[in-house]
Amino acid sequence: MSDTPFVVVEGLHFSRGDKEIFRGVDLAIPRGRITAIMGPSGTGKTTLLKLIGGQLVPDAGRVLIDGEDVHRQSRRALFAMRRRMGMLFQSGALFSDLSVFENVAFPLRVHTDLPQTMIRDLVLMKLEAVGLRGARELMPAELSGGMARRVALARAMALDPELILYDEPFVGQDPISMGVLVQLIKRLNQALGLTSIVVSHDIKETLTIADYVYVIADGQVMAHGTPQGLDVSEDPRVSQFVHGEPDGPVPFHYPAVDFYTDILNSGGRR
């Protein structure tokens, strides 16, 4: 395994309308590891994944995957590049008109000419890995949230990608499916030698599986390091986020005038 990072993000700038989302983000994602990207809600973590996947184009800066600039590819080359990546969406994003089996078979059917029997074997292998071989005939609408995410994970792995992007894999899961997902991500990463990027704000779960963590806030990388390093970080902003303290450098109160004067000067205004 070489030491060059698999994904490199350099000086990334991106804005939506007037709102600046990233102001110079630099990341280096090592090969074969789980890298977590964390940060408070609304810091554009999902946007970052879409930039890495080439679905959005940055205003400045570049994203290199295995040395190739994602945003300098032709449409065709970009689609070819994406076959080497899998992405797990927050909602699962299963195709609602296809069964579980067909959802997992979809990437195989469109990108390979494999015979039916082999596709069946591959799909059953992937479903077995996420423990849902028995649910293959169900439709996405019949699945629970956690099951849908596991099917989506099986689909993301169908073409044996080198890179998997996880968008908030733990949000809205009950403790059991949360534990299952944490296990799965860790195990798949080790067994298949994948490079994983996990975007999340679930501190506890993410820190247990991540090898390296980037914390993003206000459009920049606020801190990065190993989970242990962040846990004992002296930076008050990092420690507020990692330990989930309600008040600190990120204030509890939305900016407002002084409470005392606000109460006294009602004068019929709101």
């Binding site: 992405m87 994003a93 195709f95 609602s96 990437p107 989506a152 992007l165």
Partner: peptide
């Protein structure tokens, strides 16, 4: 609805236009 449930995005990421 396919767009809102990220089905179009996920199709793109699978490498299907």
């Amino acid at each position: 609805l396919m767009k809102a449930t990220e089905q179009l995005s996920s199709m793109e990421m699978i490498g299907v236009d």
